[in-house]
């Protein structure tokens, strides 16, 4: 199937994190450029070849935005904020259950809070980082998860990043961030992702 100009621009944008500055302007300029070339009589295929593969063009744009590793303190604070939010939501539910059903509810309630809640939290983290590069905590503390070249991470990378949380070896994984140049955890190195300071908004 032939790629349309809109498909091309969408693919370029999809390869960039949502927080990339001036995304809308990049799209408008590319659309304008393609229209201009089409008017001068060039075939769409030639024009798109001149612009390069969408992922490659996105990477060229992103290479112009310097990446600064997020400070470890801010990352810890963001994680704490991420954890506090669901815990704050779960505590009233467990309390209500306890008031309604008494002590018999407590083991059940706590199991739900840590097991079910933990799993939901894990899924939330993966989906949020995959879709926008940011959880609530990361948004609050101005940081974003990207590929090592600055591009948006894939679903697979989002899963691999969070495996240490799922299999309960998070603390060992975190230790790597103290010694690696770009402050990456072991599973961030493995997934070729990193956490950087989010670029200034437009």
């Amino acid at each position: 199937m032939t790629m349309t100009a809109d498909d091309y621009v969408t693919n370029v944008l999809n390869a960039m994190p949502a927080a990339t500055p001036r995304r809308a302007q990049i799209a408008a300029e590319l659309r304008g450029h393609i229209a201009e070339r089409l008017e001068s009589g060039q075939p769409l295929e030639t024009i798109l070849r001149g612009l390069g593969a969408p992922a490659q063009l996105a990477a060229s744009y992103l290479s112009e935005v310097p990446l600064a590793s997020a400070p470890l303190g801010a990352r810890a604070a963001a994680k704490l904020a991420d954890v506090c939010l669901p815990v704050a939501m779960a505590i009233p539910i467990v309390l209500l259950g306890w008031l309604e059903w008494g002590n018999a509810f407590l083991p059940f309630g706590i199991a739900i809070m840590f097991g079910g809640g933990g799993l939901l939290f894990w899924i939330y983290t993966v989906v949020a980082e995959w879709q926008s590069g940011q959880t609530v905590g990361k948004r609050l503390f101005g940081m974003i998860v990207v590929r090592e070249d600055g591009a948006r991470i894939s679903g697979g990378q989002a899963v691999v990043r969070q495996l240490p949380v799922l299999f309960q070896f998070f603390w060992i994984d975190v230790l790597f961030a103290l010694f690696t140049e770009r402050r990456q955890r072991a599973f961030e190195l493995l997934s070729k992702t990193r956490v950087v300071v989010a670029p200034r908004p437009d």
């Binding site: 001036r22 001149g50 744009y61």
Partner: peptide
């Protein structure tokens, strides 16, 4: 220069 080279430089 290719169009794909120009626009990222203008962006910078």
């Amino acid at each position: 220069i290719t169009d794909g080279t120009l626009y990222p430089v203008l962006y910078r």
